[in-house]
Design a protein around this nucleic acid. Sequence first.
DNA 1: TTGTAAGCGTTATCAT
DNA 2: ATGATAACGCTTACAA
Lengths: 360, 360
Amino acid sequence: MPSTPENPASVPARQRRGHGRQTLEAVAQRAGVTAMTVSRFLRQPDRVAADTAVRIRTALADTGYLPNKQAGQLASGQSNIVAAIIPSIANSIFAETVQGLSDGLQAAGHELLLASTGYSLEREEVQLRAVLGWSPSAVVVTGRHHSARALTLLHAAQRGGTPVVEVWDRHDPSADPAFTRIGFDHEQVGHMMARHLLDRGHRRLAYVDSGVAEDFRAHERGAGFAAAARAAGAQVKVLKAPAGDAFDAGRAALAELLKAQRAPATAAAFANDNLACGALLEAQARRVAIPERLSIMGFGDFAIGRQLQPALTTVRPPRYEIGRAAAEVLVALLAGELSTDGRLLPCELIPRDSTAKAAQ
Amino acid sequence: MPSTPENPASVPARQRRGHGRQTLEAVAQRAGVTAMTVSRFLRQPDRVAADTAVRIRTALADTGYLPNKQAGQLASGQSNIVAAIIPSIANSIFAETVQGLSDGLQAAGHELLLASTGYSLEREEVQLRAVLGWSPSAVVVTGRHHSARALTLLHAAQRGGTPVVEVWDRHDPSADPAFTRIGFDHEQVGHMMARHLLDRGHRRLAYVDSGVAEDFRAHERGAGFAAAARAAGAQVKVLKAPAGDAFDAGRAALAELLKAQRAPATAAAFANDNLACGALLEAQARRVAIPERLSIMGFGDFAIGRQLQPALTTVRPPRYEIGRAAAEVLVALLAGELSTDGRLLPCELIPRDSTAKAAQ
DNA sequence: TTGTAAGCGTTATCAT
DNA sequence: ATGATAACGCTTACAA
């Protein structure tokens, strides 16, 4: 029996689409109102009558309603997503930045969408494309180095009203960076590290760079370190730690440093604390006196550095603060403020026992 | 001048909604086709004519089109999101599980949505509610302990066709767990740890539990450890490390262990490697001989444990493998396979130098 | 091979 | 205070 116009679909069989969750419409029927009223209640509870509110509340609880975010964001044209792209989730240095971001954004009702690149510009581009598909209301990327196509995407996003923040890199008030930057100058930190050693009378320095090719910030610290050393008339050697486990790489680097027959370095700075700790432990194993024979310093202020003996001299970057500040800036920007001033956050050199005066 | 029926909206002013990105429609116009054809091209390129494909490709490149995922998923009724909820992103143990998940899911075209709970069941529930709003195609949670309301949500999800996998906990073939489990039996690992020490003649044991109240898995390892020790007629003391930095907590725990005047423990197992390493370092500082005076072992096989002297005896959990296996199971489930068998993955005890035979 | 129509679940807008 | 209606940008289903 064919369906008549009066009865166009007597038995609609099954939904051909949909995910089977409760919809606003179902809640509304239970509460005896329309979907619109429930929607209103969810976002502005005091704009519905008190007794209606009670019925809606009950209906919501009974159905276990969960709003469909894709539908909501599609309809409203705005998302509460902030996308963050970092080199590595495992690395504790970024983990704290993520925590800061998360803390700051959560308070303002934003959700954090996280992606990691494994220190690869190519993967950054892929991840960027992936997260932009979610129409985030803002994007956080790490550093100022991006592939040309990633830059195009970022510029387009920013033009389209999606603020972009670069974290962990210097804010340069004189230049006109396209994006807001929150972080510090890694060259200057390299400078500060060299200064620490030069001030203690060291004239033959070494910088052990990260084995990670696209860890630009480590390279910049190295460049700053070398420049400062040379400017002071000191000798400086830059070597690269092997890839792989950072502790092992640090051990290997120490072995390399000790090989030098004539004019060996009396002080070495490492691209990060894990490398430096590896070196410290290797020295311990070889019964090489630290800091007497070699002063060692790291970067990052990882928890383990404080525990070793001698305790590791290091630089504490504003790990958490960077994330927190980024969140603050974004919340302000998204709330309509126009200022996009970046922030230069300070690093602190923490002198401990692994560096000392050079022997005369 | 009022608009006539012929000209209902002569100047549509501005879009009141929308995010300003290029739409499928815009691409289609450039290519001289309809949106549907472009949509088709994007998902099944060989179902459009070759010359049409060329024009579409050009139009896509020219416009820099990025698909709107909320719209796509709303329309198709299915998402490619897999949500994972873990206790902590910073913790390297879960970082590797996430990596395994990510590797396995990426290959199958799924996106990973990550949330962390800070080891709080309450926050787990909040995060669960948040991620479920995205209609994920599957959910991964950590462990088998959840709040009652979280369980309700998980059951509802699973009933609604969203598979749920619990990782890092034992798969029990005899019981009928509601969700697929991928991991291992922590009590049994505790047993294995005790066995390692008992076999070496230790009769007075200690277990140093994590200072994190909701680290259920650490507690279970402790319970298994204590049970095995008692079953063997050995003495066992369970103490709790203070909260805060894990290395410091381990140091404090060692101090506590050494305080015992009569019948002090000759061997101690720690809830994780960071605690154990803290203890190792404190012993070094106090010139307490390890393993001669006290055998020490940890759990987790963190990178630092292998580097210390003595090297830390530990248990290597299948960190990466858990994530990888979870991804495999989910991909199979989402592809329509019905089997939801969990997997019991093996832990490996790695004897190193921090444990030895008990002195007679 | 391509197009048309309907609808996914929600919200903006305007009416009542 | 509440409702009707039309989007949001895309995909399914079916027609041409």
